[in-house]
Design a protein around this nucleic acid. Structure first.
Length: 787
DNA sequence: AGCTGTGGCAGGGAGG
DNA sequence: CCTCCCTGCCAC
């Protein structure tokens, strides 16, 4: 599946650097060790003809940015060289060290001083790339890379989770595959665990992959293998220079969620964790059933043919009774991992061509770090000083304008949104950080926008599906970066932040969306809901059909500032408007799209979620009898325990680690919570550690509708259908809480009848009409405010 | 060393 | 009971 040729602008100095080195596979800094104390970068390149690797050692220099050279007084001058940078900013000196020991000594020297906060230690690998302008994977296609997948199966004590520190737990299968159709299984039938690990090292070195991929490979497979190698005295020497991996703590954020990782750096290779890629994908889609390999593979329809499934708790007995079955299971795991990686890695791969970071790092850092890397590289090339960033901790900034003007069922509906609102504002109103002396913020934003447009146009013109999907990966990776420019302005630790500029973008955004609302109302439309850059509204009765609706939006578009474009983004038969950011839309082909945490939250018990979704469908159809029947039937099933634990267990994500949680509880900063208490209890009993970011499914037991959940909760896996012990009163209350959401759509007495059991006279839907309530617009939304 | 933001809703626990 | 505060989830 060859990919299209490189971008026409790939020679752009700011975006891509200047180094013409082709086909660079990986870089790795050589740190202290083997007695040698040199500052060397080992560069791994693809050979010209035979496809083999060329390795070269390039001298480079670890360095620090300093605000004030005086901070280094007392440090031997002959151990460093200093470059003064131009400009007025904080980091005015680039201090380059000849050896690693000098670099580390200088760090210690500075840390011993009071003003240690004034310096910043740069990522040496990244800085090398910045200095040279080298860009990884230039001119390479994704399929040129040799990607290997790895998965291990561990047999542990019955009823416990694999634990690398327990001697009796052991690896019984190591499954490997690659994107060239090769696969291999190393298993414990003829080999000891130590021999298996040695075989693994040999195989990786012989196959010599550029990339090692796995699902949850950081937190599980590599961490486990590393610990077992240490136990057996095996050196896990899988680096291209024969070195063992370097591990370090890292954190990755996915919107509001944060995951701690034991990150791994293998010399000359890149580690890709598809678990993180799946989580990143879900930030935008938010409809994945789970982040595990099997759930994700099914979601993307990538399952292996005749997929073998083995439950976690059955791995041990399956290994003893049917080893072939467990081997097939592990093989299917690596096959699915390869497919997931192929599907989800595209955007990181294309960004690596542009951003001065190795591929593995691109895949595990957020967009703000990438933008900053581009800025810093360009500033260093021009020998210009860097700003220090303005901290700004705790400052509260303005956000988007949000409001709702009707509740109930309304229609027809047009959705119009301002395309790329914040990037458009920054480009059209020349918003940039006050500290950006070289004006690169605007240059980067404009060029990325042009690149994305170009990629999108070529995607639409592409005739082959493979080309189109590659171009889609490119344009979406540019989009992520483009949208992060605004976030960069308001990010407290970014070097090029500027809170006043961020505030100006948000303020202009609010004015523009108010202008849009004013124009819609002036044209006879009725605005139902507005959120940041989009408006849902009922067009005037004279506007009928899609063509007329598009024309109506075009007219609105004439009335907003030039350079800002209002797009026609959808039409709907009806809308159920509940609360701000909470609504449902009925499409013209009968589908229901439901939005908002109070309607579709994954924190809700699945039975309640299903009840709410079905009820919304009935409300949109104005089927009051159906609503009543649904309520009665759901209640009856609940009372008869006609369900499984998946229907009523609540799933929560742990956002803190165990120590942090316990510290917060002790300090009364937070209350006890069932999910954490259960995870901690599980750790005591089975040894499965509490991990930040993991999901816990539990249900409520005990009696009485109002019980303290953390004292009356059990893990979902402990529920026994033969002896159902869920708290029926509690779940009845939960059902009624779900039903109460719909009170606003009825008169009070009608609501009470619809969502209750039949009385002596039975239930009739007649006369129980849905209620729609419009509220007055704010006066100031109609005003046209110049921006 | 590695880290994008604000606005808004629901639910649970603690304490009056 | 109620309110306040915190966390988690979601829209954009």
């Amino acid at each position: 599946m060859p990919l299209p040729v490189q971008n026409s602008t790939a020679t752009d100095a700011v975006l891509f650097g200047h180094d013409p080195t082709p086909r660079l596979v990986a870089l790795h800094p050589l740190r202290q060790g083997n007695g040698a104390d040199q500052a060397l970068m080992r560069v791994y390149q693809r050979g010209e003809s035979d496809g083999g690797l060329a390795v070269e050692d390039v001298p480079y220099y670890p360095f620090l940015f300093l605000t004030d050279l005086q901070a280094l007084r007392g440090f031997p001058r002959q151990r460093f060289r200093c470059q003064t940078l131009q400009g007025r900013h904080a980091y005015r000196y680039l201090v380059v060290f000849d050896t690693w020991s000098a670099y580390h000594d200088a760090v210690r020297h500075l840390q011993a001083q009071e003003d240690a906060r004034l310096y910043r230690i740069a990522n040496p690998t990244q800085q090398y790339l910045m200095q040279s302008g080298r860009t990884l994977f230039k001119d390479m296609a994704f399929d040129d890379l040799h990607r290997m997948q790895l998965d291990i199966e561990v047999v542990s004590k019955p009823g416990t989770f694999p634990h690398a520190q327990r001697p009796e737990d052991r690896i019984v299968i190591i499954a490997l595959s690659d994107n060239r159709g090769w696969h291999e299984i190393i298993d414990a039938r003829g080999l000891s665990e130590k021999e298996m690990l040695e075989q693994l090292v040999r195989t990786i070195r012989e196959r010599d992959p550029d990339i090692i991929e796995g699902h949850n490979i950081y937190a599980f497979d590599l961490a486990y293998i590393t610990a077992r190698c240490a136990r057996h005295g095996v050196v896990f020497a899988v680096g291209r220079d024969g070195s063992a991996p370097r591990t370090f703590g890292a954190a990755m954020r996915f919107a509001e969620r944060s995951v701690d990782l034991p990150a791994v750096d293998i010399a000359g290779r890149h580690v890709i964790d598809t678990y993180l890629q799946v989580m990143a994908f879900d930030v935008f889609k938010r409809d994945l059933p789970g982040y595990g390999l099997k759930a994700a593979a099914r979601y993307f329809r990538l399952q292996a043919d005749d997929r073998t499934y083995v439950k976690g708790e059955e791995i041990a007995q399956t290994w003893h009774r049917e080893p072939e079955r467990l081997i097939e299971y592990a093989h299917h795991d690596v096959v699915e991992t390869e497919r997931l990686a192929r599907l989800l890695s595209g955007s990181a791969f294309y960004l690596t061509r542009m951003v001065p970071m190795p591929y593995g790092q691109v895949a595990r850092t957020g967009p703000a770090a990438k933008i900053e890397a581009l800025m810093v590289r360009a500033y260093l090339r021009q020998k210009h000083a860097l700003p220090s960033g303005s901290g700004g901790g705790g400052r509260h900034m303005r956000g988007g304008y949000v409001n709702i003007f009707a509740t109930g069922v309304v229609g027809p509906i047009i959705y119009a949104d301002v395309e790329s609102l914040y990037p458009s504002i920054m480009l059209n109103y020349d918003v940039h950080p006050e500290t950006d002396d070289l004006g690169l913020f605007q240059v980067l934003l404009q060029r990325l926008t042009d690149l994305r447009l170009d990629a999108k146009q070529r995607m639409q013109a592409a005739t082959r599906r493979a080309d189109a999907s590659a171009l889609d990966a490119q344009q979406s990776s540019y989009k992520i970066l483009i949208n992060s420019f605004y976030g960069q302005l308001g990010f407290s630790v970014a070097l090029f932040n500027d809170f006043a500029a961020a505030d100006r973008v948000a303020r202009i955004g609010q004015e523009i969306i108010r202008q849009v609302m004013g124009a819609i109302r002036a044209g006879g439309g009725r605005v139902v809901e507005v959120d940041t850059d989009g408006v849902l509204f009922v067009p005037p009765a004279s506007v009928e059909g899609e063509e007329a609706e598009r024309a109506f939006v075009d007219v609105i578009n004439q009335q907003i500032p030039p350079g800002i474009h209002l797009g026609y983004d959808g039409r709907f038969r009806r809308m159920l408007s509940y609360k701000v950011k909470n609504y449902a839309l009925l499409t013209y082909d009968g589908r229901v799209q439901c939005k908002g945490s109070s309607l579709v939250s994954r924190a809700m018990e699945p039975f309640g979620r299903r009840f709410v979704l079905e009820a919304i469908g009935l409300l949109l159809a104005e089927d009051v009898q159906g609503l009543h029947d649904l309520y009665v039937a759901t209640r009856a099933r609940l009372l008869r325990h006609e369900w499984s634990v998946e229907d009523f267990a609540r799933t929560e994500t742990l956002k803190e680690n165990e120590a942090q949680y316990l510290a917060d509880v002790t300090a009364k900063r937070r209350s006890r919570a069932a999910a954490y208490e259960l995870a901690i209890a599980r750790e005591r009993e089975t040894g499965q550690a509490v991990r930040k970011g993991e999901q816990i499914a539990y249900y409520v037991t005990g009696s009485g509708a109002h019980v303290t959940a953390f004292d009356n909760a059990r893990l979902a896996s402990a529920w026994n259908p033969a002896q159902p012990d869920e708290n029926t009163d509690y779940y009845l209350r939960r059902l009624d809480e779900c039903a109460r959401k719909f009170a606003v759509f009825f008169h009070a007495d009608d609501f009470a009848r619809v969502f209750s059991l039949d009385d002596l006279f039975g239930f009739t839907p007649h006369g129980r009409e849905l209620q729609t309530n419009w509220r007055a617009a704010e006066s100031r939304t109609d005003a046209s405010i110049p921006v």
